[in-house]
Write a protein that binds this DNA or RNA. Sequence first.
DNA 1: AGTTGCATCTCGAGC
DNA 2: GCTCGAGGTGCAACT
Lengths: 245, 245
Amino acid sequence: MTSADAPTRTLAHPDPEAAAALLEAGIDEGALCTLFGRCRVAYDGRASSTLGPGDRHVMLKPDGAALVHTDEGQQPVNWQPPGCDHAVWVDDGDLVVESERETPDEELAITFERIDHAAAFDVTDATELSLSGTEEDLRERILDEPDLVEPSFTPLATERSTAAGAVDIYGEDADGRTVVVELKRRRVGPDAVGQLDRYVEALTRDLHDDADVRGILVAPSVTDRARELLAQKGLEFVALEPPET
Amino acid sequence: MTSADAPTRTLAHPDPEAAAALLEAGIDEGALCTLFGRCRVAYDGRASSTLGPGDRHVMLKPDGAALVHTDEGQQPVNWQPPGCDHAVWVDDGDLVVESERETPDEELAITFERIDHAAAFDVTDATELSLSGTEEDLRERILDEPDLVEPSFTPLATERSTAAGAVDIYGEDADGRTVVVELKRRRVGPDAVGQLDRYVEALTRDLHDDADVRGILVAPSVTDRARELLAQKGLEFVALEPPET
DNA sequence: AGTTGCATCTCGAGC
DNA sequence: GCTCGAGGTGCAACT
């Protein structure tokens, strides 16, 4: 492991200048950089926020993302999306990390009054995540075995576009009636009913032949309120989960 | 800074046993722990996923959250929510980090074949984020100055409950007609129209006096499709943003 | 514990 | 670039 590769560089309790040098080099080289220490954070863009002094972990990604994590929560307390430009400097003895973008105009500024740790990691990761149990898996399950929706259900198209958007599965029932199927990988609430209702209304309008269009919500389960809404709208529910594999 | 405090402990290129010892101690003491190195990841719970070998940054929080970050994206490629139990051991020469919870039963397993860096940070952060530009700010703006919705609009309640859920602002117009206002802090699409429509229908039903209920969507702007849906449903739109401060 | 809706949601696909 | 909907969404408030 030669220093020319310099795959990982760390500094314990660096002064602001040393930390800034490490970060600048790391950002320049496409490294993933981290900081830990006591800092204040200010954000302004789609909204605005300020955060007083506290110990936090900061990550700067080579794609321009920035993350500020406290000791709690899965979500960062402050962040900046990929595509931002990171900049670092020393202001009045404090290390300042700024990450900004345009469209929308957003800026995140982190001011460290104490730096416990700084690091730059060379990172390569071409591997893609393999995920199962998604809505797409549920769709494939139904296309494989349409009777799971109801006997003699016939899928005719997926992602069929309507004036209200694309419906998950478009098909017809044993009597030749048009059926709109909306899929959800998990238990559904009122929003999913509204979505299905929009599609059914749009399709009824599109077909303009007064033939009633059936709407079926397919999900593992429904909340009470969603079930009431379904009844009100004359829509149906079929309990079905994505396959386990 | 004494070793009894041990506020920050780091290891460069530790062997699996040393890393495991650091992590175990850090988890035990409520420290925020990080790892960087080449690893594989497997998740099983609400869905299932696998991720082949690659360089990633792993964070274990004292509240039980776990985050696996690659070089790209704001979101972790794998994670575990707060409330999980972290466990660490060495298996066949590899460091294994596992984080699991029940309700729902979920498990995340990270296997390191190379460890570049391990750290444990003592972290305290009582500071709360101050955020502005939210939907609540928009609501307060309207309650302060109801004419922003329309002249002589009178708010009567916020979060008024209906059979379809709580409406943002419930009030009446200059003619005494019931008005339902749905607020959005940013540009709205079809989903927001569906939401407003649900509330208007529920309230019309609740009041059961055939007095028509007006529905007004208040947001910075609307998409074309949402505008069409509003027209179809006989709902209205008022352009208004959250205050800048 | 379950439900509901907001979020600086993020992210990807389609247009 | 915008739009739309999925997401292992997370998250807080409320029941």
